[in-house]
Design a protein around this nucleic acid. Structure first.
Lengths: 199, 199, 199, 199
DNA sequence: TATGAATGAGGGTTCATTCAT
DNA sequence: TATGAATGAACCCTCATTCAT
């Protein structure tokens, strides 16, 4: 049945969020879903294959989420506000995967870095995701520019890059800075960006 | 002699940049510097202890670098330009550690994430580094504000946070976006920040 | 198959009789029965677990032997003679375990002491064995007392303790005293005990 | 200085009472007395040599104690009472070695068994001790027999053996039987022995 | 489709021992 | 007389992998 394979992938992902690759044993996965180690080899040729598929699945879902979040007919302000409401991402993600990142951006980042170091193919996937986000954002901004909502002198491509980078950076740094409020930061970024970009 | 201990630490760090923690074996380190596995235990009580000291050293050096980079009597423009000249960091770092990150920010980030997940003590060290950077930056901006170079309505603390986050985010995202130039990005960020902040 | 597990247990016991715990390596056990070291971990979670089960098995069998030896409708003389025919124990034991103690009571004692020092659970088992022996003996003596074969003033419980202690002591000391004959000793003890106990 | 060597021996013994041979490392001994592992090799050619000398010392002291305890002009009752006042042994021993057996006969027995299994030479020493005890006891009893205090038909040699065995056995078994009082047992043995032996 | 026995390579760790100083 | 660096062998243990069933 398909169920078993998906159970394996899910358990693998769950453990991968908690421990690192080498620490996650096929045994623990098998135990976790009530099958035998050997059974895993019916669905995956090797541990690497399993985890590669696992990560591919994760980041595919992530791509869907980010793509959908940038479709639609947003005003500039709505666009920015969506971009800087960081928690939405992880929540959306948890809804789609069933994996609880516990609001922990570190765990998610670690997954990304680990995937990249281990599987070159994953790096391309992730690159694709960010590239897509930037492209979508660029298009939206460009559209707003055409309609006169964004200043003419703005380089849409670069702005898109900056915005994505900023969002990412804030999520990362906020892990190390407990005395600053997420929502305040988000709103502040929205306002300062509006000020320098809005026509 | 002290040489051996430092050779061990250096080799450990070198391997850690390339592979992940579990993959780096004491065997390979020992082989790499021409001693026996058992010899490592003359200097370190365990693998964990070795790598913790290894990471502690790395991040201590990083702290020194970042702290020094934010001392001095900068104008607002100089300050921002220093903040967004990303390559300077890694270069400075390589000069101090002898470790070649090959302009690869991912490897460095991985080191950070791994350290945080594995050693709580390291997390505190890193938190301290970022907190320090933000505090130093806040003070510098605050000073500039007193002198009338920065707008009165700016919240210095929050601006400091945003700037650090942005710098970090750009370095990270740029790893996935090969078609944008680092120097251009940096200069553009300097300009747009000046525009919204300068009195 | 169950065979392998039992082979492991048996080999472990055999080596344990010869060397001490720390000296018996899983390697030697594995080699001794033609499997791999890793194979042992299919049946036992750790070296300790293996040897604990090993000792538990040994002492359980011992319990059975001693219990059976004290059941039945013996006369006082038969009872004592059974108690002081030391070799019977070890012979019986070898029949049940296949382990050759080579008439060497020291090896067996060592097993006991080692088990006690290392595994608290084993200590309780052994305590139980001796307590059982004493209780059974006490009941038998008490029964004989009721029937008028044992003097009224005898404290059955204490006599039981003394007899067990004496039997044990003789077995132990005889290891260091080669110039005294076991059978003579046994018979002599039977006679002197009869003299002071028999009604 | 002689001090160091004795410190080593003493520390070795102390650890040997607590852990078993393989578990006691030269490192822990060296640490325990504030010297280096290498320093031990100035006094002992190997670990085995050290511990053999260590055990030899222990059992030599034991021999002195037991020998002295059976010298003197005792009455039969005094003799027996001395023999069955078990705690005296360990106390005397602790006074001479500084090692605390914590009233724990098991630890002492274990030392004996371990020594025997590991060093054949030690076995002979111990055999000698017991043989000596039996011989001394035999002489004392024989002397009492000549004086008419012990029945004529008693085989002195065998009685000596029995008494030593009983004492040993009681100490051993009492470790497993917590609900019987040492002093009561001792006194009871004295009485019952008197009854069957005294002229 | 899945089990379970077994392998074999490798990992971290301990420790007696050596030796230059 | 003692240190301290270093070795090397052995140890327990883990785990991905294979394969007969």
């Amino acid at each position: 049945m398909k169920e078993t394979k998906e159970k394996i992938l899910l358990k693998a992902l769950q453990f991968l969020v908690e421990n690192d690759y080498e620490r996650v044993s096929l045994n623990s996965i098998a135990d976790g879903i009530g099958i035998t180690k050997g059974g895993i080899y019916h669905y995956f040729g090797s541990k690497e294959e399993l985890f590669q598929e696992c990560l591919r699945t994760v980041f595919s879902k992530m791509q869907n989420i980010t793509m959908n979040s940038l479709k639609g007919d947003y005003s500039l302000e709505e666009l920015l506000r969506g971009l800087f409401s960081f928690e939405t991402y992880l929540n959306e993600f948890e809804k789609n995967t069933g994996i609880d990142f516990a609001g922990n951006y570190l765990n998610f980042s670690y997954l990304m870095f680990m995937g990249i170091k281990k599987f070159p193919a994953i790096k391309e996937l992730i690159t694709e995701i960010y590239r897509g986000m930037q492209k979508d954002l660029e298009n939206l901004i460009s559209h707003l520019q055409t309609e006169g909502d964004v200043r003419k002198e703005i380089d849409c491509r670069q702005l898109a890059f900056e915005l994505v980078a900023m969002a990412e950076g804030v999520m990362l740094i906020s892990e190390f800075t407990s005395d600053i409020d997420f929502t305040t930061i988000g709103e502040s970024l929205v306002q300062s960006t509006l000020k320098r970009v809005q026509a």
